[in-house]
């Protein structure tokens, strides 16, 4: 596989977009701008390579349905932010880290190993104790819930695509 080339201007633009989305969503980017820029470049490289911005710090399969959980922002971002103060790549960090009150350490991989991965469920995730008139869908990235025939094309909260939703009820 050949490495892709990302233009300087393109990269600057994408960094600005990622930063703007982060602020709008209440997230913080790693204040180490060189580090952050390299990760954004990695996202762009993966987008060219696979057709979607797979996590730069994980190996993508090239099949979107197998990589849904690691399309940035990944399913694991918020849990890692809470527990370790940073996402696995340390692109997103906590307020404490942005303010320099804490430093980022290595973050263990939360994604299950290949042999234990499940595909996103289109059936309700648990026992459903009540009957609902419409299916309830949950965004796996931000937890947004909505009751409608199918999930929205784009999550109105965190802007991820429809295939990041799972059936909740």
């Amino acid at each position: 596989m050949n490495d892709s080339v990302i233009g300087k201007e393109e990269l600057v633009k994408r960094c600005e977009e990622v930063a703007r989305d982060a602020v709008q969503g209440g997230y913080f980017l790693n204040p180490d701008t060189d580090f952050t820029k390299n990760l954004v470049r990695g996202l762009m490289v993966n987008e060219q390579r696979y057709g979607y911005p797979a996590c730069p710090c994980r190996i993508a399969s090239g099949k979107r349905e197998q990589d849904l959980d690691i399309i940035c922002p990944c399913d694991y971002r918020d849990t890692d932010l809470e527990e370790f103060g940073a996402c696995y790549c340390a692109l997103y960090v906590s307020g404490e880290i942005t303010r320099g009150e804490k430093t980022v350490g290595p973050i263990p991989e939360r994604r299950p190993p290949r042999s234990m991965r499940k595909t996103v469920s289109k059936a309700p995730s648990g026992n459903v104790p009540l009957t609902v008139s419409l299916p309830v869908w949950r965004c796996r990235v931000c937890g947004y819930l909505c009751a409608r025939e199918s999930p929205p094309l784009v999550c109105p909260i965190c802007k991820v695509a429809q295939d990041r939703f799972e059936r909740f009820l």
Binding site: M1, N38, L39, R41, G42, C57, I59, A90, L91
Partner: peptide, 29 residues
């Protein structure tokens, strides 16, 4: 991985320590 920030830091550290080593960018295979 060629795109990973922590991998880059590890590679830089090996260079700084000046140790003989081999590396592979698995995503480029």
């Amino acid at each position: 991985l060629s795109t990973c920030g922590w991998c880059a830091k590890t590679k830089e550290l090996l260079a700084e320590l000046g140790v003989e080593h081999s590396y592979v960018y698995v995503d480029l295979l």
